[in-house]
Design a protein around this nucleic acid. Structure first.
Lengths: 246, 246
DNA sequence: GATCATAGTCGTCTCCCTGACGATAAACAC
DNA sequence: GTGTTTATCGTCAGGGAGACGACTATGATC
């Protein structure tokens, strides 16, 4: 039988779901929207939507990201035109358990977005409201997310946690110009650990291409003025920044 | 408009494609099948097929793997019942460019399988024939694979190359019992570099839980008899085995 | 059987990175 | 001024990795 015989394969709906992560007040947070309809009406879920005809998967994810946050995404390959002005966006994984949506066969291509701290989210599309929630709360059993979104969120968080180890991706959580201390607080929030400020400073300033001085100082964190940096061209950290054991 | 209105989203076909990697005679090889029909008739492609109704994505990949190679897959989480008797199988990424298949909208969830060296592949399903080909040849520009399979293969190879750095996954390329030298030749083939046998031996035997002695020796590689090992329970290598720079 | 080639295994030495932590600097709050 | 906070520089010890010497145990070759 021909593999292209239309009767030979079942039709699927394809969606993109977004795990949008940011760091707000020392906590790793993700964007969730309240579902306005069945199933899981009234429950919190990850933002997402259907992939349109003629639309690439990454383009659909970028479109959803703009709709929900106003953030423009830039490809991981390209250097961001204005670092910090857009979000990092990458494909995470695909979820297609037959019963994950009770109404039809839906395959969801989850994407992971990392963004600097933002003002309140815009509620868009089919959501009554939207908010940033600490992932710590969501991954607890209190009020699980709709569908398999709890699993998707967990996978996205784990991806982010491991990826900042060996890449410069943590700068995606920072504004265009940032201090070493701000970057350190990103690592601390994502990993949920405390890092030694002196060793961290030595590591990040000593890695060629990771940070480039932006030429000013700031005192927005209090204390002694800190040098401002931009993200350098290096994307891979070698040797990596190792996550502490516990 | 309701997101579940059937007219609100286009139907997709969903397939799984497999990057099956193995090490044959010091080279990293992948399984390819010759296409029997249009498009790309007569060209080599990755094995794959449609996801069936009610079938999970991973199950579809496992089914295709059995059909093409006879290998049973085991989940990355579980320890293999008989190490080396099955293949490691994990989801790789999803490819859904609108024109990747000229005839219809197809989203392909690519999977990566790592297997020990096998006898000649069985040609199955819609393929005239199948063979193991060194990835080095396929990634050159000589005769590109059908569809976007060249990109999928490249992504799969890169995943394998980076993952054996920080996990014990290289043992998935080995038979149930293997020597340190055989494991080293796996790393050398996957990375395409030469490793110092003494430092490699110190590293892998010194990492707790990576290897457990199997209790015998073998001389199948020539030279002094070597101790046989099995894969230990450890899945994460910390500190990782770093890929040499060049 | 002596010699050689091949592979495996054990040690040593040095360098670099890391973690732990002392000390100093430059702002602000009172 | 004094205390507090944060940033930044330095020092020191320990561990892992690269480079490489030395020895061992097999089969192949003469």
């Amino acid at each position: 039988m021909s593999p292209y015989d239309p009767s030979a394969f079942p039709p699927f709906a394809v969606t993109v779901d977004l795990v949008v992560l940011t760091v707000r007040s020392h906590a790793l947070c993700t964007l969730i929207v309240r579902r306005g309809e069945q199933p899981y009406q009234g429950r919190w879920a990850l933002p997402g939507g259907f992939v349109r005809e003629g639309e690439d998967l990454g383009a659909a994810a970028a479109r959803e990201l703009v709709e929900e946050t106003g953030l423009r995404a830039h490809d991981p390959g390209d250097p961001p035109p204005l670092p910090g002005n857009g979000a990092h966006l990458e494909q995470l994984a695909t979820y297609g358990a037959p019963a994950r949506d009770p109404r039809m066969r839906v395959v969801s291509v989850a994407h992971l977005a990392l963004a600097p701290d933002l003002p309140a989210p815009r509620a868009g599309g089919d959501a009554n409201s939207a908010r940033w929630a600490p992932v710590e709360e969501l991954l607890g059993e209190a009020e699980p997310l709709a569908f398999d979104h709890g699993q998707i969120l967990a996978d996205g968080v784990e991806r982010a946690r491991s990826k900042i180890e060996y890449s410069s991706l943590a700068t995606a959580f920072c504004p265009p110009e940032f201090t070493v201390g701000e970057l350190r607080r990103v690592y601390e929030a994502v990993w949920g650990v405390a890092l030694d400020p002196r060793n961290f400073h030595r590591k990040v300033t000593g890695t060629p291409g990771f940070l480039v001085p932006a030429g000013g100082t700031t005192t927005r964190q209090g204390g002694r003025p800190a040098q401002l940096f931009r993200a350098g061209g290096a994307t891979l950290l070698n040797p990596p920044m190792l996550r502490p054991e516990v």
